[in-house]
Design a protein around this nucleic acid. Structure first.
Lengths: 150, 150
DNA sequence: CGTCTTGGTAGCATGTTGCAACCAGCAGCG
DNA sequence: CGCTGCTGGTTGCAACATGCTACCAAGACG
């Protein structure tokens, strides 16, 4: 059983996020959770992942506060896994990955699953990185400010 | 040498993105690339990753079109790894992970590296998921539209 | 040339993944 | 109750990936 941090680059928020999620499977579990999956079996069928791996990932996601294991929902005595507030906050991450994938790995017209606005059924606006005063920023417009102590 | 797709969930853009990046190290390599790293040694020192792993990851990132290996830059005969357009398009993904980490894994006041607007030195605005007509969307406001054929 | 740095490769121990088999606790049914 | 099937796991083992260390070849540099 490991709580060891793999990327001890711990002053970087990206590294901590990556560490908290655990691995790619965990990310896909979170994606499925956004899509409405809640039960062990749903995740398992949707992902095709081995059950022991799924067990371990669900456990670390629960331990990390991303998912929560709640007693029931349809009356049965089984458990369900639902996103916590912290888990829901991963929404922009999933959306960003989705948009990157759509733009780069599908030929125009090739069908793929789409994330749409529930109210209007329309596709989402592409994510934009904005400055504090609302300008659109490219990677080159930003810089990393490393602060150690003080 | 593997081109095998790990997550054959291939109709989902998230799965394809995840597959294209490869693993967490690759993501941190990309993060460092955004921060200005270009040379093998820079990545190696910054990440503390084993050199054979770094070699492999750089190679798959280049093969995947995220990085590009360019001949030089400071006159020496060595190579550098720079982000392609596709790689730069990962910017929102990195920013989203960074913001999630900042909000959830640092106690208030705890120092961490910051990504700032180069012009004004200010922190970025939190990413927002927006509908086509500009409303701010929560996860519950969206739904996944799975299209198979047609 | 001799030496240091850069950018790797090679070999091996160890850790993680994935498959398959097994199993316990409900559920439903007569 | 006893049988059967489904859900949600656990366990063992083989295969693969990771990471460490040592080594190495080709610049750079005087």
């Amino acid at each position: 059983m490991v709580t060891r941090t793999r990327f001890d680059d711990s002053e970087c928020p990206v590294a901590r996020s990556v560490d908290a999620i655990g691995d790619w499977w965990s990310l896909l579990i979170v994606r499925d959770a956004f899509d409405g999956s809640r039960r062990f079996g749903e995740f398992q069928r949707s992902l095709g992942v081995a059950k022991n791996i799924l067990t371990a990932r669900l456990r670390t996601l629960v331990a990390g506060g991303v998912l929560e294991s709640v007693p029931a929902s349809d009356g049965s005595a089984y458990r369900e896994y639902v996103l916590t507030a912290k888990g829901k906050a991963l929404f922009p991450v999933i959306v960003a990955l989705r948009q990157w994938g759509e733009q780069n790995f599908f030929s125009p017209g090739e069908p793929h699953s789409e994330l749409v606005d529930r109210r209007q059924g329309q596709r989402l606006r592409p994510l934009e990185v904005l400055s504090a005063d609302g300008r659109r920023l490219d990677p080159d417009d930003t810089t990393v400010h490393k602060l150690s102590a003080e």
